[in-house]
Nucleic acid binder design. Structure first.
Lengths: 253, 253
DNA sequence: TAATTTCACGCACGTTATTGCGCGATTCGT
DNA sequence: ACGAATCGCGCAATAACGTGCGTGAAATTA
C-alpha cells in the first residue's frame, strides 16, 4: 500500500461519505491509526480536507470550518475579549478588526454602553445590532473571503477618513523578533492603515498566536501600545515580548 | 458520530427550523442530552447561536428571520428569492438590498456561479461567504440598526462609484398609486442612489407588501422595470399594478 | 556489492478531548 | 408558589491525540 494511494482512497471516501473516521480506515486498510492520522494531518495541511477530532471532514464545509476555527483556544479568546472590552470607555471611537477574538470583544461589550465602533468586518457590524447605543460605522471595500473583511483601495481610502481612539487588532502571529504578522498582504496593508489612524493600538493575542509568525509583516512593536493576553497564557511565551518593551495586559487582573 | 459533524448538524437544523430542542436531538442523534447541551453551549460561546432554556435559537434576529418557521410569508420570500436568483446570469454585477427577501435570494444563488455582488448589508455580505466565486463588494457607511444596512453620505458616495447590471430592491410598500415606499428617509435615499446606478431595477414583493404604503417614497413605477411576486400571491393584488404597466414576474413559471 | 541515507510505519507514552452520569441549582409552566 | 423540567458543573472512564523512537524496506552512493 503506497502512501499516495492511501491518501487517494481517503480523499475518495471523503468525497463519497462526507466524512472520514480514522479508526474505521485503520481497520479497513489494515494500517495503524497513527498512519491514518498522519495522512489526514498532511492532507489537511494541503487544505484538501479539514481535520477534526476522530477523523476529517471536507474542507469546503464553511460551517464546520468557522466553528472549528473559533474553537481553537476558545476560552482564551473569550477571556481576552472580556479584558479588552473592559478597556473601552463610554463615548470613545474604537476600531474593531475582523476575526473571532474581536467578535468576542464585541459580544463582551456592555449592552448599554454608548460608543462608536468602526469596522471593516460585516460580521462584527452584524454582531453589534443588539447594542442599541453603539453607533456602527462600516468600512466598505472588496470582501476578502478568507477572513471576511473588506480590503483593497476602497477600504483604505475609507479608513483614512476615520480617527479612532483605540484600535483592537487581531493578528495571526506575534513574535518578539518578527513583530506582528498576518497571512495576507492586503489585509496587512489595511491593518497598517488603521494603525495610522488610531491614537492607540492594542493587539489581541490568544495563546496560539504568541511566538508564531505568518507571511506578511503588519507592524513592529513600538507602533503598537500593548498586547492583551489571557491569564492562562504561559509566562515563558511572554518573556521575549517583555524584553521588547511591549506592555502586556490582562495578566494581573 | 464526530463532534464537529454533530455541531454542523445542529447548525443546519437551526438554519432550517429556526430553533433547536435539546431533547429532540438527544434522541435523534442518540447521545445524551448533556452532550447536546454542551455542544449548544460551545456554539453559543462562539456566537453561532443563542442558548435558551430547552434548546437554542439563531444568534441574531436577522438570522431568525431567515428560518422558515414563524415568519411572515416566509415561503413567499423563499420562492421569490429563488425566482430572482434564476434571473441572475454568470458574470453580472448585481446589487443586493438588505432584508430577509434579498437574503434568501443570496442563499438561492448557485454555489458555483461566478458574479459580483454589491451590497450595503453586512448580513448579505456574510451570507455569501460560501459562494467562493462570488466577488462581494461591500458598501460602507453608518449602520442603520433597524434594517442593518449602511446608509448616509458615505454610503451614497460609495454607491455612486458603482455600476451594476441589476438591482434587486427590497421595499416595505408596493402600491399602485404611491409607488415603492420604505420606512426610513435615508434608506429611501440610498435605494434611489442605487437605482440610478443600475441598468435594471427589480423589486421584490412578498405578499404583505403589495397594496401597502410606508412613510417615505423611494421611486415610482416607471423607474423600476419589474416586480417579482410569488405564485401564491392573489391576482387581485396585482391588477392595480398591471394597469400601471409594471411587469410582473414569477407568476407564469 | 556493500555501506549509507531516506523514508514509511508502528508502538509506547504522556496529554488532551469527549462523553455520560450524579448532584444541586435554576427556570418554567401551571 | 410548587412540581417538573432543564441547567451547569465536577468527576471519571474512554477515546483520540501528537511526539519521539526503533525497525525494516527502498533508494542512493561508493
Amino acid at each position: 500500500m503506497l502512501t499516495t494511494e492511501r491518501k487517494a482512497l481517503l480523499m475518495a471516501a471523503l468525497d463519497k461519505d462526507g466524512r472520514i473516521i480514522a479508526k474505521e480506515f485503520s481497520r479497513k486498510l489494515d494500517v495503524s491509526e497513527d498512519t491514518i492520522r498522519r495522512d489526514l494531518r498532511e492532507l489537511a495541511s494541503e487544505g484538501l480536507l479539514q481535520r477534526v477530532h476522530g477523523g476529517a471532514l471536507p474542507a469546503s464545509k464553511a460551517l464546520a470550518d468557522l466553528s472549528t476555527r473559533g474553537n481553537v483556544s476558545a476560552d482564551d479568546k473569550t477571556e481576552i475579549g472580556k479584558i479588552a472590552a473592559a478597556m473601552v470607555k463610554e463615548g470613545q471611537i474604537i476600531f474593531l478588526d475582523g476575526g473571532t477574538t474581536t467578535a468576542r470583544l464585541a459580544r463582551a461589550l456592555r449592552k448599554d454602553i454608548s460608543l462608536t465602533v468602526v469596522t471593516h468586518s460585516p460580521d462584527i457590524a452584524s454582531a453589534l445590532i443588539d447594542h442599541s447605543r453603539v453607533e456602527v460605522e462600516a468600512i466598505g471595500g472588496r470582501i476578502f473571503k478568507h477572513s471576511n473583511v473588506a480590503i483593497g483601495a476602497v477600504a483604505i481610502e475609507a479608513i483614512s477618513r476615520i480617527r479612532a481612539d483605540i484600535y483592537f487588532m487581531g493578528v495571526t502571529g506575534i513574535h518578539a523578533d518578527y513583530g506582528l504578522t498576518t497571512g495576507d498582504r492586503e489585509e496587512a496593508a489595511v491593518k497598517r492603515a488603521i494603525c495610522s489612524r488610531s491614537a492607540e493600538t492594542i493587539a489581541l493575542g490568544s495563546r496560539e498566536k504568541l511566538g508564531s509568525v505568518s507571511a506578511y509583516s503588519v507592524v513592529d512593536f513600538g507602533v503598537i501600545d500593548s498586547v492583551v493576553v489571557s491569564k492562562r497564557c504561559p509566562e515563558e511565551l511572554l518573556i521575549p515580548l517583555r524584553t521588547k518593551g511591549v506592555q502586556i495586559m490582562g495578566r494581573s487582573t
